[in-house]
Amino acid sequence: MLRPQKFLSHTLLYAALIFGALVMVIPFLYMLSTAFKGQIYILEVPPSFLPKEITLQNFVDAWQSNNFARYFGNSLMVALATTAVSLVVSAMLSYALARFDFFGKNILFYAILLTLMLPNLMLIIPEFVLVKNLGLRNNLFGLVLVYLAFSIPLNTFLLRGFFEGLPRELEEAVLIDGGSYWTIFWRIVMPLSTPALATVAIFTFLFAWDEFTWALTAIDDPLWRTLPIAIATFHGEHATQWGLVFAASLTAIAPVIFVFVSLQRYFVKGLTQGAVRG
């Protein structure tokens, strides 16, 4: 209650928060500094955060001689395609679950909830056989299809909650004016749901951008590698060349961190508002 007391407690809290934030950030800073170090300064004692000589060689090597530009492009294509398609089809399904009664609805919904609980990885073996039989291994389209399947349950679940809370009056008005449900969906439901859609889009994008295990299993051709497998393979090939490995890693995380930092207010808001009136 007393001012000095409050000041003291705030100081302590800030000290604790700063300590915690340092623990979170120091590994990143160390990675950043290592990426700018030459091979001879890797794993020196004592470790240093400021490279003695800053070199861009690691980035040049990763980008020029190791095809990282291509892997970046592959990841981007897969993540964007997954996000766009998943958003639309999940929203359609969610709308149907929120607004209509139809045969099989409950079973479908429970199946979705069930798969939400199960590890995606448990499906990797049958998925492998299925995708092989469809001739979709070694193929970005095969990645997208499986990522779609992995992302639809959660997206549908989140969006359905949001759609149930949307007011129906506008929709009724459209129907009375002779509009179809398709019109309602695109003209009313989707625009009203921008915050929820943004949240879902960001999560889906992150998932597809970072996914490792399925890509590792499905892609054999180096031309179709995505960034996570490229980085893991890179580590296997250059086990001691940490500067190179981290220069490659920064390639993968920089856009994600940029997107997160610039959209975060929007997306935290989206997450919390996603359930307004739910």
């Binding site: 429970y110 909830l113 069930l114 909650g161």
Partner: peptide, 29 residues
């Protein structure tokens, strides 16, 4: 800012419903 509760509550409710309710659909297929 209460919305998060509603989201959370909604998810839990659904999971509980799925887990305990509707005996007609046994959970593991």
């Amino acid at each position: 800012m209460k919305q998060i509760h509603i989201l959370v509550g909604g998810i839990l409710l659904s999971i509980v419903l799925m887990a305990c309710g509707t005996p007609a659909t046994p959970p593991p297929p």
